[in-house]
Design a protein around this nucleic acid. Structure first.
Lengths: 248, 248
DNA sequence: CGCCTGGTTGAGAATCATCAACATCTGTGG
DNA sequence: CCACAGATGTTGATGATTCTCAACCAGGCG
């Protein structure tokens, strides 16, 4: 049992689940919504944000088809977004890590297109959309940043589309690992050692693969000495090769 | 040779390519950006929109990595969005029909993530983003509508993700046909008879399939009497079955 | 007319899914 | 603290779908 795996921090546990911290003090404010806001404007944003007790694993922030009222930011933990397809199967559409915004898919139809569920104990900031809209008309830099965040989600989705459309199973798994690695790095955590908060089933579902294939590919990577896998603990041993495989 | 195919109108040729028509007079104004704006506000929007001569087949509106300055609306014709992947292959990320907005992917990084190219002669409205942003702070309903449009693009991308992740080749092709059918209907054209403006290669690329597979599936649908294919002219003979196959 | 691009069809190969058995991990209650 | 049950993950054998390679056909344009 390698200690550098056992001791690796979780991406999701970057900061405490304390829900009373406000935006100004939040360690995530440089990568979250307040980015590009002046101190006084952060306070105005802070005033409309609602925080509540951390969610337990399995609890929902919102469900598919529920009326849309707010967008959300992850303070700690990890969530998965998913929807139920016409034939009753689950489709995982994304994972949300600390500092990331989610729920914006609901704006178009005023109801959520996906459900969002905590994969582990998670703290969430809720931002009532009406008030965010109002504030956006007053703070152009907030409007601009919000446009940016939505545009970024579009760009990421298109990245995933390319992945699903063109890549082999190995490339897909590599791409997910690299994605989580870079999000871990963005949180000032290790880019090579982290914990996967989601199940193999969720990974396979997200990547359009079966659990078995995901498992086999983890084994293959391990045999190739590119990866060290210990249940949910991951250590990327050859990050350049992994990035290459993921397609830069 | 069925005449109802030969006579079917093109989705892309809904309105003329005349580029002097302004928003108030545009036949698309009820489905395009001006939706939800008052007459006087439409004029303000109209003033910032730039129109130019129609693009010929193969010409670009913008290219990947070019600086982002504007978003665009399709007035007539059809475009494809695509990017070049790390290993030099093309990935088609979407098709744009009249009344649809595109180019919003560029907001996040201030440069376009994809190229947009005319698949046939197309007329485009260019909307300088800076001025759209300014106007949005003054017209809350425009801001809201623009949020909606971006959110809608996210929802559509996630639809495609599900398609690529879960569906068989037949289901994918059916889903694309149904998507084009409903866009055709939205333009007050036939939901069952239309022309495909894109090549089989583009279809395959978009759906994550090879040209050969797409071709075989068209043949299979034709043998099953669900479809009538005559080069690019399409007639959906059993639309309910096709919708079912596409996953509602 | 003939070239060239784009589309169709066929045969064989490869990747990934399916089915099945087994291993391990988690958490719950005794 | 242990034991057990259900969930989760791994591995192997087999098979289906889709890709690849290749030949051929049709249509558009010089």
């Amino acid at each position: 049992m390698s200690s550098n795996i056992a001791e690796s921090k979780q991406v999701g546990n970057f900061c405490t689940h304390d829900y009373r911290v406000n935006c100004s003090d939040c360690r995530l404010n440089s990568i979250c919504l307040p980015i590009a806001l002046e101190a006084q404007d952060i306070e105005r944003l802070d005033k409309i944000i609602q925080r509540s007790k951390p969610l337990h694993k399995g609890e929902h922030v919102h469900r598919e088809n529920e009326p849309f009222t707010s967008v959300y930011a992850v303070r700690s933990g990890c969530l998965k977004a998913y929807k139920i397809t016409g034939d009753g199967k689950e489709q995982v559409t994304g994972f949300h890590f600390p500092g990331e915004l989610f729920g914006v898919d609901g704006i178009a139809k005023n109801s959520h297109m996906v459900s969002a569920k905590a994969l582990e104990t998670s703290a969430i900031c809720e931002i009532p959309f009406k008030r965010l809209e109002e504030l956006s008309t007053k703070l152009p830099s907030l409007q601009r940043h919000f446009f940016r965040l939505m545009s970024q989600e579009i760009a990421e989705d298109q990245q995933l589309i390319t992945l699903l459309s063109k890549s082999s199973a190995e490339q897909r798994v590599a791409a997910l690992l690299i994605s989580i690695s870079s999000r871990s790095a963005k949180l000032k955590l290790s880019a090579t050692a982290f914990r996967l908060p989601m199940s193999r089933t969720d990974i396979g579902n997200y990547l359009g693969l079966t659990v078995e294939t995901v498992s086999r590919i983890f084994s293959r990577f391990q045999k190739a000495e590119m990866l060290r896998v210990e249940n949910k603990e991951i250590c990327i041993l050859q990050i350049e090769e992994m990035q290459q495989l993921a397609g830069l």
